[in-house]
Design a binder for these strands. Structure first.
Lengths: 153, 153
DNA sequence: TGAAGATGATTGACATGTCAAGCAGTTTGC
DNA sequence: GCAAACTGCTTGACATGTCAATCATCTTCA
């Protein structure tokens, strides 16, 4: 069953390229829903989880708010508000930078670190369950998607 | 520049599969932003545009509200409210079905049809500008994404 | 030095996405 | 028939995403 039947389109796609665009959008959406499960069952949204993973990678130094935004898909204002919530939940500490008082450094708390550790294996397992492709096909996919993103710049 | 640098991840991906998941999510997001331009410049959101395209495909008979939802990525409640707005703008007519009074048939209006026609070439052109891949690679991409979606069921 | 501009972050207003609950109308099975 | 279950759609409440505007703080450079 191709995407054509899958989204029950009556008319054929205008072009193979258009079909590809829609296929990428739909696949991403399906993936998002699938991946969200184990994260949301622990009271985090997928976006909050992503922030925490980035902050974990940053270590004890933490990161400025906008640096976190730069590593994510989200726009700036969304980060501020997500960070507010994570702070409320006790998963993030924020502190104004002393040398540049415009910046606010965000750091993951021990509680959040513990939670992430607990979730790691479930999430990693889910990724490999979800993407079951021969090595060659997987590499090709990564290459093609990168091509597309580059041509978007 | 790979996705690794692109999203400035400090640590490597846990697996190639995880990298693929993130690549699909990010590519979809980049695409969405790119494609939105010509649609939003005419006062429609991407979602409203999708609904109108589906209704155009359905012809003068129209479609029940939930049938439109089924052809889209959106969940049911979102459709009701998007349809409210399209009706307000005069782009959609709604009428309760006589034989099954639970259903509400939605039809595209002539005004919306004209608007869509005006937008068609711009959108189609954008798709082919955006996806610039050799034929073989394009076909492979479609096949791989379909594989992934099927394994999500 | 001090005014103009850049940068980091936040807020307001609004669009969309989602679940849970609810209502109206249909169907089913006794 | 008629109560129970199902279906189609809508609403409420809330999370997220986005733009534009704003505030505070640097930086630059005449």
């Amino acid at each position: 069953m191709g995407l054509l039947q899958e989204i029950k389109q009556t008319k054929p796609f205008a072009s193979r390229e258009q079909e590809a665009v829609l296929a990428i959008l739909k696949t991403a959406d399906d993936l998002r829903r699938r991946i969200a499960g184990p994260v949301e069952s622990r009271g985090l949204s997928l976006e909050q989880y992503n922030i925490l993973r980035i902050l974990r990678g940053a270590g004890t130094a933490g990161l400025p708010t906008l640096e976190v935004a730069a590593r994510m898909i989200e726009r700036t204002p969304a980060i501020t508000r997500l960070m507010d919530k994570l702070e409320q939940k006790g998963f993030v500490d924020r502190e104004r930078c002393l040398t540049d008082r415009r910046q606010v450094f965000c750091r993951i708390t021990p509680a959040a670190l513990a939670l992430l550790t607990e979730m790691d294996s479930a999430v990693i397992g889910l990724d490999s369950q979800t993407i079951q492709l021969p090595e060659v096909e997987l590499e090709q996919l990564l290459k093609t998607l990168q091509n597309i993103r580059e041509s978007l710049t």
